[in-house]
């Protein structure tokens, strides 16, 4: 089985990289880009039957820093 973990800065945490991307899109002439948030995607190839709880522990212990980041798991 495969799982895809999306890690994003929490709402309210300033994302300077997202702001820089937003600015660059504006420079390229794209209008109406009101906000950009940058995160990361981590794909896991897991033994069949790995529980959602185990994947959540992987996120909590390592994949996301829950002080500043939130995560979402998508089982593929």
């Amino acid at each position: 089985m495969k799982a895809r973990v999306h890690v994003m800065l929490k709402d309210g945490v300033l994302d300077p990289q997202g702001a820089a991307i937003q600015h660059a899109l504006g420079t390229l002439g794209f209008k109406g880009v009101e906000d950009v948030r940058q995160g990361k995607v981590i794909e896991l190839d897991l033994a069949d039957g790995t529980s959602a709880d185990t994947i959540a522990q992987m996120c909590e212990k390592l994949l996301a820093n829950t002080v500043i980041e939130s995560y979402r798991v998508e089982v593929l």
Partner: peptide, 17 residues
């Protein structure tokens, strides 16, 4: 030390990048 939880908070990318 913040990642181990021995100190609170986190260090993020510099505001000016």
């Amino acid at each position: 030390l913040t990642e181990t939880g021995l100190l609170p908070g986190a260090l993020m990318r510099n505001a000016g990048l």
